[in-house]
Structures are given as C-alpha cells and as structure tokens.
C-alpha cells in the first residue's frame, strides 16, 4: 500500500488531469464559510436530483408499469434484439477504430514537431464542436445518391447512406476525439526522453511502445475507451439522419426508443430505454474502477 501512495505523489508532480482536480478539492486549512458551502452543496444536489435521478426513476418505473412480463416481452422483441445487435456492432467498430486512431494521433502530436501540428489537433476536435445532425447530413451529402461520391459508390455497388455502413461511419465520426483527448495530455506530459533513452540502447519502435509508452498511458486509454463506448452507444442525431429508419435494418437502440415512443408504445419505449440505462450504469461502474486504479 505504501508503494501505491508514493506513486500518487509522483503522478502529482507530472500533474495529470485527475490529480489536478483532486488538488483543487483538497479542503482549505483556514475556516471557511460554512453556510455558503452547504448552500452550494444543496443546490448541486437538487440540480442532480432534478436532472439525473428523477428521470432515471421515471424510466425504470414506467418500464415496469405493466408488469415484469410486458417488460421482458418488450426487451425480447425481435426488433429490440436487432437494434441491440446493431448498437453493439456500431459501438465496437467505433471503439476499435477510434482507439487505434487515438493512439496514433496522440503519439504523432505529442512526440513529433511539424508544421500544421496545431491545425491537426483542431481538426480532430471537429466532431465535438459540430452538431451530430449536421454531421449526419454531411455524410448524406458526401456518400448519398445525389452526393459528391454518390455516382462512384453506386457504380461499385457500395451502399453507405440508409444502410449499416452509414450508421457505423456516423458513430465513428461522432466519437472520434474521445480516446485522443484522454491520451494526448498524458503522452505529452511524458516527454520524449525515456523513449529516446530506449531508442539509443537499440530498442525498436514496438518495444518502446510496449515497455515505455504503454505503461504510462494505459489507464488514460481505458478511460478514453469507456467514454467512447458510452457516447457511441447513445448516439442519436447523426445516426438518425443517416439511418433512414429502416426497421430491423438500420435502427439502433436510441432510434428504436424514439420509434416506439412515437407509435405510442410508451411502456415498450421505456423498457428499451432501461436497457440503455443499464448499459450506462455498467459503463459508469467501469469508469469508476478505472479512475480508482489510475490513482
């Protein structure tokens, strides 16, 4: 245990994200204004209950409104299972692609200096600043029938818009920066010295990554992957635009919820939502474990 504690100290010196937060949270030594403190705590708690806890309760209670059997029925429904499968597939694709991309991009941007470095970093952030609906539209304008690459794709028999590849592409796009954002600061703070020292002794690129870079970034990587997963699973806007709402084909769980709700299958809609909630809670637990380990 003593070992762990000393490690914490070392990371503090490097100043990675979580520890900077912890430093801020450290209670001040001098007596502070207690009334102010409790007022702020109360407000935060109220806000959280209103915005997070209440809706969750509503989802669960509505899902179970017509009893357990209806709930199970809604979840085991053919279309729900298909939507679940597509969501899982799209999420997996997004996580794999963006993890690989995130590792390469942050490695490039933190270890090499070249012109246009800043520009590249800004470009990677575009999916954060652009509305997902716009992103979906952009894909239609690029890959759709009347789109920019439409002729080419059509003549080669590739269908992207209103098909599964489009859904996956949109999910990848929206979640592109997550892993990069987590990795970059950590890789940057590590510097190049250790890697240079290893290279000088004759270590190859892969050995250097495995033995020097990876141990330093692994928790940040896990964290990025988890955030990416959470976002990919819940993605609605971009996927909604590009999917064309083909039931059983291009419908993901969030879209399925919307359709059910619009068709007044309220209980079923809530039941499917609860599925997403459960997945979200699982992710939250994983996230906390990672955060705890990272200390």
């Amino acid at each position: 245990m003593a070992k762990k504690k000393e490690r914490t100290y070392e990371k503090d010196v490097i100043g990675d994200g979580i520890h900077s937060i912890r430093k801020v949270i450290e209670p001040p030594k001098e007596p502070s204004n207690h009334r102010m403190k409790y007022a702020l705590i109360g407000m935060s708690a109220l806000f959280l209950i209103l915005m997070l806890v209440l809706p969750l309760i509503v989802v669960i209670s509505n899902a179970l409104r017509d009893g357990w059997n209806t709930y199970v029925g809604a979840i085991l429904d053919e279309y729900t299972i298909k939507a679940l499968k597509l969501t899982v597939a799209a999420t997996l694709c997004a996580v794999v692609v963006n993890t690989i991309f995130g590792i390469f991009a942050s490695y490039l941007l933190s270890k090499f200096y070249f012109r246009g470095r800043q520009l590249l970093a800004t470009l990677i952030d575009i999916p954060f600043s652009i509305s997902p609906v716009i992103a979906g539209l952009l894909f239609i304008l690029t890959f759709g029938n009347v789109g920019w690459m439409g002729e080419f794709l059509k003549s080669n028999g590739i269908k992207i818009v209103f098909a599964v590849p489009g859904v996956i592409l949109a999910t990848i796009f929206v979640t592109l920066p997550f892993v990069f954002r987590e990795l970059f600061p950590v890789m940057n703070s590590q510097g190049k010295d250790e890697e240079e020292a290893a290279a000088l002794m004759g270590a190859g690129g892969f050995t250097i990554f495995r033995k020097i870079t990876f141990p330093h970034i692994k928790w940040a990587l896990m964290y990025g992957v988890i955030l990416c997963t959470a976002r990919a699973m819940g993605e609605f806007g971009a996927v909604s635009v590009i999917s064309g709402h083909l039931r059983g084909k291009t419908i993901t769980l969030p879209l399925h919820v919307e359709i059910l709700y619009n068709e007044f299958h309220t209980t079923a809609a809530f039941a499917v939502s609860s599925l997403l909630v459960i997945l979200a809670v699982l992710i939250l637990i994983a996230r906390n474990i990672v955060e705890w380990k990272r200390k």
């Binding site: 010295d193 250790e194 240079e196 020292a197 000088l200 033995k211 020097i212 330093h216």
Partner: peptide, 13 residues
C-alpha cells in the same frame, strides 16, 4: 554510446 540525460530519463515503470 551511453547517454545520461539531463533529467536522467529513467524508465519510471
């Protein structure tokens, strides 16, 4: 060549 870096650059893990 053996190199001792300005800040040692020991492999911290």
């Amino acid at each position: 060549i053996g190199f001792v870096f300005q800040n040692y650059a020991l492999f911290r893990y």
